[in-house]
């Protein structure tokens, strides 16, 4: 096995593309998007205020 030759960033992308189903990729993207959305962008007062201490503690920009 020639790990040194084949182990490149491009190869990693290729392996990911070819060993994962589109469904898995979608789930992966949704995972990131959902939590980022929930934590950073939700401006609903009830949710927003519940997260108050966390947002300040994490230095997240919205207020």
């Amino acid at each position: 096995m020639t790990v040194a030759e084949s182990d490149t960033v491009r190869n990693r992308v290729r392996i990911a593309q070819e060993t994962m189903t589109p469904g898995q990729l979608a789930a992966l993207l949704a995972f990131g998007a959902a939590i980022a959305f929930a934590l950073v962008f939700v401006q609903e007062p009830l949710v927003h205020d519940s997260l108050h201490d966390f947002r300040h503690a994490a230095g997240i920009t919205c207020h």
């Binding site: 939590i35 929930a38 934590l39 007062p45 009830l46 927003h48 205020d49 519940s50 997260l51 108050h52 201490d53 966390f54 503690a57 994490a58």
Partner: peptide, 19 residues
């Protein structure tokens, strides 16, 4: 504030874990 401080603390801790 829309929620109590206790709620805010619990949710904040939970969202810290999520973060």
């Amino acid at each position: 504030e829309a929620v109590s401080e206790t709620t805010a603390a619990i949710v904040s801790a939970g969202s810290g874990v999520l973060w």
